[in-house]
Write a protein that binds this DNA or RNA. Structure first.
Length: 402
RNA sequence: GCUGGAGUCGUCUAGUGGCAAUGACAAGAGACUGUAAAUCUCUCGCGCUUCGCGCUUCGUAGGUUCGAGUCCUACCUCCAGCA
């Protein structure tokens, strides 16, 4: 069972630590979205320096390239990517929702590879097998997001997600048993060694004691859309399963999220971590998520927006490509101590973007990723010292001013 | 100087009688939430009451025509070849 310690509670919110085979995650925490085993535009060293604690990769994308067998051969996701810290994989369930030409049946989902058009089917069982080969510390159950927001469609997708969850659990346990018996001669897994939260790591290449860890964990995924009765039903269903934590999926905006989480989180067992899938582009997502009982978050927004020139500041997002920054020689964000803000000014960033230099995307990604990771850390600190409400009000009032 | 070719939005460019005029780039702005996203969308002669209307435009000046960026004449500029 995945170890999760809670240091402090405040209403639904909690401050804790998740102990994975590849190190600890101090929660609440923002997990870097590394779909293809890389946080776009950033090296793993940069991610460490930013203060990232964990990354989340995507099963669908990784089985297409480079293939789950290859990642297993490399020693697992952490070894392969050089991250050497805690890792998650998303199941591929999101692709049922986001890709066109997806055919869903009770057995699973038939996709068409966006790379070469090759058809293949992903099932709860195959997703578990893929994820075990990829070898992240924490796996997501294979779920289905409804394509429409109608109640009947949402209910149907949720119920299928539940049936798939049972199959995921069975398959996960089956693989886990096989791996334990095969790995019994390996050195015991040491937790807390990969000090992933240290701001600078002296040696990026740590010893390979975690190669192909046999300890891998499964999160169930709560669905139900905007319907609170469905959310409650889904949470109840997932709560009883022998899983290590919970993903909360199918959330697209902070609107109504507090109510939804206030329905879901009290039903979920308190001693297991909860991951809010795909949320964290907006600061309010992290505040509302953490306040209402979510421990980890992931989102592609910060890095995607960074590549497109949309950068966080305490006064809201700015588009650094706008002409008004041409002669602005101030740091992007005065209060930020990321590499970008410490060493460069807005006029320079503007110039890099206007001339389409690669470094523009690198520096912007460093800043945006640092911003959300640091924000989650600040939320953690505020929860610990009891200043969360003040911090939240102050931060949001300034950020969403105008 | 002669002969041939060319001058169209900031730049390059399409255009061979119905055209405020094609495409690209540049420029201006917007979007982005478990990443088919270093992507996508909009604006881009001027003005207005902006799903429309008016005005002014294709080197310059005339002309032919119901109508000219497109045809004719002259001139200006540039390019190539010959002197």
């Amino acid at each position: 069972m995945l170890k999760f310690e809670i240091e402090k509670k405040s209403g639904l919110a909690r401050v804790g630590t998740i102990y994975t085979p590849h190190g600890e995650i101090k929660t609440p925490a923002f997990v870097g979205a590394a779909t293809l085993a890389t946080v776009k535009a950033l090296t793993m060293r940069e991610m460490r320096e930013i203060g990232a604690q964990a990354i989340l990769a995507n099963t669908y994308h990784l089985i297409l390239a480079p293939g789950d067998d290859l990642i297993q051969e490399a020693g697992g996701l952490a070894e392969f990517s050089g991250w050497h810290g805690p890792t998650f994989t998303d199941s591929g369930g999101f692709q049922i929702f986001s890709l066109p030409d997806v055919r869903i049946s009770e057995n699973g989902a038939k996709f068409k590879s966006h790379i070469n058009g090759a058809r293949f089917e992903m099932t709860p069982e195959s997703s578990m097998q893929n994820q075990w080969k990829i070898g992240a510390d924490i796996h997501m159950a294979f779920d289905q997001l409804a394509k429409s927001d109608k109640y009947e469609d949402m209910k149907e997708a949720m119920e299928r997600t539940h049936r798939w969850l049972d199959r995921c659990v069975d398959e996960h346990q089956k693989i886990a048993r096989m791996n334990v018996s095969r790995s019994s001669s390996l050195a015991p897994v040491v937790t807390g060694l990969a000090s992933s939260i240290a701001p600078v790591v002296a040696n990026d290449l740590e010893p390979s004691i975690h190669r192909n860890s046999y300890e891998q964990y499964l999160y169930a995924v709560v669905q139900g859309g905007d319907f609170l009765d469905l959310r409650a039903e889904s949470a109840k269903y997932c709560a009883d399963k022998p899983v290590d934590g919970f993903g909360i999926g199918g959330v697209f905006t902070a609107k109504g999220m507090d109510e939804m989480l206030q329905t879901v989180c009290p039903i979920l067992p308190e001693n297991k971590p909860r991951h809010l899938l795909g949320m964290g582009q907006e600061p309010i997502d992290l505040f509302v998520g953490a306040e209402n009982g979510c421990d980890t978050f992931d989102c592609v927004g910060p890095t995607r927006m960074a590549r497109n020139g949309s950068l966080y500041t305490l006064d809201g997002r700015i588009n650094i490509k706008n002409a008004r920054f041409k002669n602005d020689f101030t740091p992007l964000m005065l209060e930020c101590d990321c590499e970008c803000c410490k060493n460069y000014n807005r006029a320079y960033l503007h110039h890099l973007f206007k001339t389409d230099e690669i470094t523009a995307k690198v520096l912007a990604s460093i800043h945006n990723e640092h911003f959300v990771i640091h924000l989650a850390d600040q939320i953690r600190a505020a929860l610990l010292d009891g200043t969360f409400q003040d911090f939240k009000q102050e931060f949001l009032a300034r950020y969403y001013h105008d």
